[in-house]
Design a protein around this nucleic acid. Structure first.
Lengths: 149, 149
DNA sequence: ATATATAATTGCATTATGCAAGTAATTAAG
DNA sequence: CTTAATTACTTGCATAATGCAATTATATAT
């Protein structure tokens, strides 16, 4: 296939819209798309530092620092100084943050399940395995697919 | 699979990074990621109007209008009034715009080909078919996967 | 003609972005 | 032990992006 870009672009865009839509319907004014990604990433990482999360998302640390400040102000995220190194802040979700994140997560998964329900069971299996393969291959490609800088 | 979101998120993020990286190495200061998507979309559509492109990308028309202005100033895009309706502006790429777009397109496709080269021929086939299936299913899901508003 | 609708642009206020410089804490060197 | 070098994070500042409301210009309907 010589139009790989088109395929991926369309997929990424459609998923982006799904994502925005879910975030909108869940959180409305409460949360931006980027912020929902931050919650997601804090949730799934083990006691991450600022750099851990900003790095994973490819967001500049300075922008990230400000985003975290607003999330803390909203009462969704907590910063705890690392016991062995006071420079480091461990990020975690507050109870409210977890609830919101679960809600978004549920919505996104439900929408995706809806999309997948159009496929046969066999196709679903294949599609999922394919994405897993792709993800592995991308993680393996040192040069590309990696956060900037 | 109950973690569809995780799979898609990772894929979209990795492709996003690949995309940024390519745009950076091709155009450097010259072009933002959004702008590269605008070029792409103008290229592949047939004589699109402003709304056609901004709608496809899910960008607010007013923001889009300003982006187009800067692209016109850079000499990459041309606006032509529609012969039958002077309210409409047809967008097209200048020669320079086409060259730049081709360059980006080449890079992205090359990087993706690199990723795919890690898979067996059979896996590649399967992966491509899977994405096509997904894209179709997403386009079909009226509610989600659609630009906001 | 006058009213309505549509395509696009501009005003304006808000938010996001990222570099450079700053603060604070930790580690390394002399 | 004290000074220098590193590391984690935060702020200043200037620029770019965003989106709603209002405006302009053209086209369609009554």
């Amino acid at each position: 296939m010589d139009n790989l870009r088109g395929l991926f672009q369309l997929l990424a865009r459609n998923f982006g819209f799904l994502n925005e839509r879910c975030c909108e319907s869940c959180c409305g004014q409460e949360l931006s798309l980027t912020q929902s990604h931050i919650l997601y990433e804090i949730q799934r990482k083990h006691q991450p530092s600022m750099q851990d999360v900003s790095g994973a998302l490819g967001i500049d640390v300075t922008t990230f620092s400000r985003q975290i400040k607003t999330l803390v102000d909203k009462g969704l995220v907590k910063k705890t100084p690392h016991p062995d190194d006071n420079r480091i802040n461990i990020l975690s979700l507050t109870l409210e943050g977890q609830q919101l994140e679960n809600q978004i997560n549920g919505q996104v998964n439900a929408q995706l399940a809806g999309v997948m329900s159009q496929l046969t069971a066999f196709e679903r299996e294949t599609v999922i395995r394919s994405i897993e393969l792709l993800n592995k291959a991308m993680q393996n490609s040192g040069s590309c697919c990696v956060p900037p800088k």
